[in-house]
Write a protein that binds this DNA or RNA. Structure first.
Lengths: 345, 345
DNA sequence: CTGTTAGCGCCTTCAA
DNA sequence: TTGAAGGCGCTAACAG
C-alpha cells in the first residue's frame, strides 16, 4: 500500500521529506501546499495532497513551532490535574472550541521544594515556540516578563504584571462566615489557604471582617494553615478538634481542605453538622458527593476558565482588553452546616 | 499577526546561545552542563550554572524534542475536556506524579466532520517528537502503526493493535437494567452511545441481555441514539417521552445522556423518579449534582487513568505488560430511580 | 511555478 | 576539557 520508495513499514514518523520524495517534488513545495500558500501549480497541489493523504502525513507541531512563531495552540499550565484545575479546564476547553485554536494543558507535576517557580519553568519550556499564549493557574510567582501573552487565574499576591481573572474571594468568605454566625456559631475556625495566593489572603480577610462585623473576637488559635491541601488540613483539623474548647464550626479556605476537616471529624466521632459545621470554598463538583454534601462558597469555575480564554484570545488578536476580571461568588448551602450544638455539660 | 512592538529580541526567550555568551563558553559546553554529561571542568560547570540561574534559562522543550528522541513527557489525547476526560486526567496525573515524567494533555477541539481520525492527527503532530508515549481517550479509529507506545482508554471497536484499558461495560449495563426491572419497570428505553466505541456496543448488549434474562421483549422503538451527548440525548428523549406509550424508565449510555433525559423530562413536566426513572453510566462527579441526584453505573475513572499510565510507563521501560486491563463497575443508586408509576388510567 | 539556501534552538559526533 | 560542524523537520526568503 505504500509506495515502494521510502516508506518502510513500521518505520517512524512520516516526514515532509517522505512526502516530497513520493510526490517527486521538493520539500518547500510540499510545505507550500500544506500551508496553502500560493505559487504552486494546481496539478502539483493535487498530487501532493494525494500523497499526503496516502501516507497519512501530518506536520510536526514541534518542527513547525521551532521555525515559525505562530502555532495555533494555546496552553494552560497547572501544577497538577485535580478537581479545581480540571473544572477550569472545562471552561477553557469550551471557550476555545471553534476558535481555530487547539488546547495544550501542561502539568509540571513537581512536588515539594521544586514547586516554587514551576510556572516560570514551564512557560519557558513551552513559550516562544510551542504555544502562542498561556493561561497559568495559581501561579506561585509573578510572571511579568514573559515572551507570550499570559493570563493568570487566581493569581499570586503582589504586583501583577499581566492579565488576571479571579472571583470575589473576600465577599465569598464573608458570606460563608455570616451564614455560620446566623446559625449561632461563635467559635468559628479558619483553615487558611496557600499563603502566596491572593485568594487565600482575601478569604482570610473576609473571615476576619465578618467576625468583627458580627461583634465576635478573632481567636488566633483558631486560625491555622491548611495550605489548600486535604491531607495537611486533616492533620491540622485533628488537633484543632481534639482540644478542650474546640470550635463548633470551621470555614475551610477551599473544598479540599473542607474534605480534610470532614475526614478528621469522622475520625474523632464528631457528627456533621450536629456537632460540627463545615464550610468550604470553590464548589468543585466533588463537594456534592461528600458525606454530608458540603456547604460551600461557589466560584464560577467554568466561567473563570472561559473568561481567561477570551482575554487571552483578545490579547493574541492585539485587541485592547481589560486586564482584570472578577466574577461573583455565591453561597451554596448543603448539609454540612447546621445550628450550633447545645453544650454538652 | 505579531504585535509590532513587543517583539524586540531582548525581551524574548533566553536561549542556550545567550547563556554561552554570558558564561564565555561555547554552546555545546552549556548543553553538557545542563544535561549533566561529563567532560566539563568543575569550574566551568559552576560558572555556567550560575549564569543559567541568573538568566532564568530553561531548555526549550521544542528544540530538544526535535533533536533527541526522549523528552520525558507523556501525552494524553482527548477530543475536548469534559467531565469524563477530566476525571481520567486526574487519575493519569496522580499516577504520573513522582515518576519523573511531565504530563501534556492535548485537545484537538475539532467539531463535526473533521472529528473522525482526530487522534491519528494529534498523535502525528506530537509523536516522534514532543511526547514519549500517549494515552488516547475514546479513539474513533484503531491506531495501529504508531511510532510511540500508545494505550487506549475506552477503545474503538474492532481489532486492537495496541494496549487497552476499559471497564466492565456489559456487566454494568446488566446491573443498571436489573435494578430497573427490580423496581417493576417493563418499558425501559435505552439511549445508545457513540457507535464506534466498544463501550457503547457493550452497554447496549448488556441492556438487551438483561431484558431477555428478565423475560422482557426488546421494543426496538425504545432503543435510540444519544451519541453520548447531552443535547442530542435531550432531543431524542423529548420525542421518546412525548409518545403515547412512553417508557417508564430510561437507561442512558452515559451520564451526559442521562442529564439530557433529565432536562427533557423536566421540560415535559415529568417528575423524576415518580413518573420516570433514569439511570446513567460513568458516575462522573457531576452526577451527584443533578436534580435529583443521578442513579448511575460507576466506572472507576481515576483508576482507569492510573492503570493506563502504569501500562504506558511499563511499555516505555520496555517491560512486558498485559495489553488489556478491565476494571469492574458498580451500580450507584441515588434518587433518579424509583418504583414504576401506577398507570394513569 | 519550482527548487536552493538558510536558519529556528538544541544535541551529538569528532577534532583540536 | 573544549569548540566547530552537522542535522532534527520545518518554513521563509530568494534564486532560477
Amino acid at each position: 500500500m505504500d509506495t515502494a520508495i521510502g516508506a518502510r513499514p513500521g518505520a517512524g514518523r512520516v516526514t515532509i521529506a517522505d512526502v516530497a520524495r513520493a510526490a517527486g517534488v521538493s520539500i518547500p513545495t510540499v510545505s507550500k501546499v500544506i500551508n496553502q500558500r500560493d505559487g504552486v501549480a494546481q496539478g502539483t497541489i493535487l498530487r501532493v495532497q494525494e500523497v499526503v493523504e496516502q501516507l497519512g502525513y501530518e506536520t510536526s507541531l514541534v518542527a513547525r513551532s521551532l521555525r515559525s512563531s505562530r502555532t495555533g495552540v494555546v496552553g494552560i499550565l497547572v501544577t497538577e490535574f485535580e478537581p479545581f484545575s480540571t473544572e477550569l479546564l472545562r471552561g477553557v476547553s469550551g471557550a476555545t472550541t471553534g476558535t481555530g485554536y487547539e488546547l495544550l494543558a501542561y502539568a509540571g507535576l513537581v512536588t515539594g521544594a521544586e514547586q516554587k517557580g514551576w510556572e516560570r519553568r514551564s512557560l519557558s519550556r513551552l513559550s516562544g515556540t510551542l504555544i502562542d499564549g498561556a493561561i497559568v493557574v495559581t501561579p506561585s510567582t509573578a510572571l511579568s516578563a514573559s515572551s507570550i501573552p499570559v493570563v493568570a487565574i487566581d493569581p499570586h499576591t503582589g504586583p501583577e504584571g499581566h492579565a488576571t481573572v479571579d472571583s470575589d474571594n473576600e465577599g465569598g468568605a464573608v458570606q460563608a462566615v455570616e451564614h455560620l454566625v446566623a446559625l449561632g456559631h461563635t467559635r468559628i475556625a479558619h483553615l487558611r489557604g496557600r499563603p502566596d495566593l491572593a485568594s487565600a489572603q482575601l478569604r482570610e480577610a473576609g473571615y476576619r471582617r465578618a467576625l468583627v462585623a458580627a461583634g465576635l473576637d478573632v481567636d488566633e488559635s483558631l486560625v491555622q494553615d491548611g495550605g489548600y491541601q486535604e491531607d495537611r488540613s486533616a492533620e491540622v483539623a485533628l488537633a484543632l478538634l481534639s482540644g478542650p474548647d474546640r470550635p463548633t464550626a470551621v470555614f475551610a479556605a477551599n473544598d479540599s481542605s473542607a474534605v480534610g476537616v470532614l475526614r478528621s471529624a469522622a475520625a474523632l466521632g464528631l457528627r456533621v453538622p450536629e456537632d460540627l459545621s463545615v464550610v468550604g470554598f470553590d464548589d468543585v463538583p466533588q463537594a456534592a458527593t461528600t458525606t454530608p454534601p458540603l456547604t460551600t462558597v461557589a466560584q464560577p469555575l467554568v466561567e473563570l476558565g472561559s473568561h481567561a480564554v477570551e482575554m487571552l484570545l483578545a490579547m493574541l488578536r492585539g485587541d485592547q482588553t481589560s486586564d482584570h476580571v472578577r466574577l461573583p461568588t455565591t453561597l451554596r448551602v448543603r448539609q454540612s452546616t447546621g445550628p450550633v450544638p447545645t453544650p454538652d455539660r
